[in-house]
Each structure stands twice: as structure tokens, then as C-alpha cells.
Computed example of a mutant assay.
Amino acid sequence: MNGLITTDWLQKHLADNDLIILDVSQSTSVNNQNDVHSAIYIPGAISLSLKDWSDSKSQLPNTFPSPEHFAAKCQEIGIKNDSKIVVYDDQGLYFSPRIWWMFNAMGHNKVAVLDGGLPKWINEARETASETRKTSLKRNFEPKLTKGLIKSYDQIYQNIDSDEFVVVDARSKGRFDGTAPEPREGLSSGHIPKSVNLPYTEVLNGTSLKNQDELQNIFNLKGLSDRKMVFSCGSGLTACIVALARHQLTNQLSPIYDGSWTEWAQIVSSPIATAD
């Protein structure tokens, strides 16, 4: 699976025995992305709460879970190591790339995001269901975490001097420049020194990802074509949208700064840059 699949592909494979469909729509987010298609699902989908699949002990939102926690959640809903997984959400492409990236980071690459998500599925008048699938089937899942895909605060801080990679920030230009407030109360806006702003909205065409030529042009204009990249945002969520866009061009999984701006701005000693 190449990271992104079409509604036509999913329609043809709905009955596959090894296919797991995950609805990762969330009731709300810090950016006020609300659940716009309540109680409408793709047939056979299992609902997944991002909060339940994150590290509950962390003070930061959406923190990557331990392999043990991740494996337990997979086993709860019948995911095994040879399962094919399709993730989608009711925004089109918002929450689902985070789960896609998490599975890949845990060594499971048989996973793809539904391009256009639920809105595209509904707009094409495809069959829907009013309930998600409930399952009590327990299966074994053994994660193989690639630690290099999860960047820490210290690694991001040290990179300001070492310049081994470029941090690509998926937040809006106003937040990056320090001219618009952060949605999380008490956080200053601005950006990590030497980082590059690529708002996640720029890689989208409505609810779908832009085509490869458009994406390549975007990365070229940002001067990112030949750079090693680590993606960041407010909480590690929309960074995965831009990471998915990069994956479509390179077929490589990119690291995420998991604490992202929420962590960076909370630490008093963090250097913060703003627009000139």
C-alpha cells in the first residue's frame, strides 16, 4: 500500500478478509475541526479515538504511545501484523494521516489513508452505515518501533546549530510568523529558529491531497527538495499531513517532532523566532 488510496480502490476491496477500516474522526480538535458527519460511516469501519491511542501519561497532546500500549490497542480491535489497514476521517485529510504515520513508525506499512476521506465517499453517493463495526476478535500484533522517526526536544534544539535537517512547520503563516495567536491558551506564537513554514493547507486541494506535480512544486519553492526534513506543527497532528505529502513524492517516511510547538513554547529557555 503506497500511503494513499482512492475511493474506487476501497470500494473494490471492502469485502477483503484481511482489510481493517478505521474511522479516526474525532469530535473536536484545538483548531475547532468538528465532527461534521456524525453517525455516518463507511461500511465495516471501526471507530478509533486518537486520545486512547496516545500516551495518557504525557502532559502534551497526541503524544506517541509506548509499543506495548499500541500493540494492546491493535489487539483489542483485531489488527494483526499482516492486516491491510485503511484510515479515514470526516474532514477528508486531517486526523487520519497521524494514525497512518503511527502505524508506519511501529513497523506496519500495510496502511493507507483514504484520499478525500468520508466527505469524498459521501459526495460520490457510495454506501454508508449508521454504526461502526464492533469486534471482540483478539489478534496478536507485534510492533517494531523505528525510534529515529520520533524526534525529541533535545534533538530539535541541537539541530539549530548542527543543521543536520530542516524542521518543516505545518502551522499557519500567522502562527509561524508570530503575528497570530496560538489556539492553546498561554502559548506564544513564533517558530523554531531556522525552520521553514509549509502550512498543511497548502498541500491540500479541498479534502484531498494535491497531485504529485503540484506537491513537488510546493517543496521546490520552499527550497526543500534535497533536504532532510523533520515535520512539526502544534501537537504532532497536522505535521503528519505534510509528511504524507512528502511520502507521495519519495515513498519514504519522515520523522515528526512529536512534542511540536506545544512543547517548544512551554519551555522557557526555548529560542523563538518571529517574522522580521
Rank of each mutant, 00 (worst) to 15 (best):
L149W: 07
L149D: 10
L149E: 04
I150E: 01
I150S: 02
I150M: 03
K151P: 01
K151L: 11
K151S: 07
K151H: 06
S152H: 08
S152L: 04
S152G: 04
Y153A: 00
Y153V: 04
Y153F: 10
D154F: 01
D154V: 05
D154Y: 03
I156M: 11
I156P: 02
Y157C: 06
Y157P: 03
Y157R: 15
N159E: 00
N159T: 00
I160G: 02
I160R: 08
D161T: 14
D161N: 15
S162C: 06
S162Q: 15
S162F: 07
D163C: 13
D163K: 15
D163N: 15
D163V: 12
E164Q: 15
F165T: 03
F165L: 01
F165D: 02
F165P: 04
V166I: 15
V167N: 08
V167M: 12
V168L: 07
V168E: 01
V168D: 03
D169G: 00
A170N: 02
A170Y: 05
A170R: 06
R171F: 03
S172T: 14
S172F: 04
K173A: 14
K173S: 13
K173E: 15
R175H: 03
F176W: 05
F176R: 06
D177H: 13
D177Q: 12
G178N: 11
G178S: 13
G178K: 10
G178Q: 10
G178E: 09
T179M: 07
A180T: 02
P181C: 05
P181A: 11
E182F: 09
P183V: 04
P183G: 01
P183E: 04
P183K: 05
P183M: 05
R184E: 09
R184M: 12
R184G: 10
E185W: 05
E185V: 13
G186W: 03
G186Q: 07
G186L: 08
S188Q: 11
S189N: 11
S189Y: 09
S189V: 11
S189G: 12
G190A: 08
H191K: 06
H191C: 08
H191Q: 08
I192W: 08
I192V: 14
I192F: 12
I192H: 08
P193N: 13
P193T: 14
K194E: 00
K194R: 15
S195E: 10
V196Y: 00
V196S: 05
N197L: 10
N197Y: 10
L198M: 11
L198T: 08
P199L: 12
Y200I: 00
T201G: 08
T201W: 00
T201N: 06
T201Q: 12
E202D: 12
E202P: 00
E202F: 08
E202S: 11
V203S: 02
N205L: 07
N205E: 14
N205H: 10
G206R: 07
G206E: 07
T207M: 07
T207F: 14
L209F: 07
K210I: 03
K210H: 01
N211D: 15
N211T: 02
N211S: 05
N211M: 02
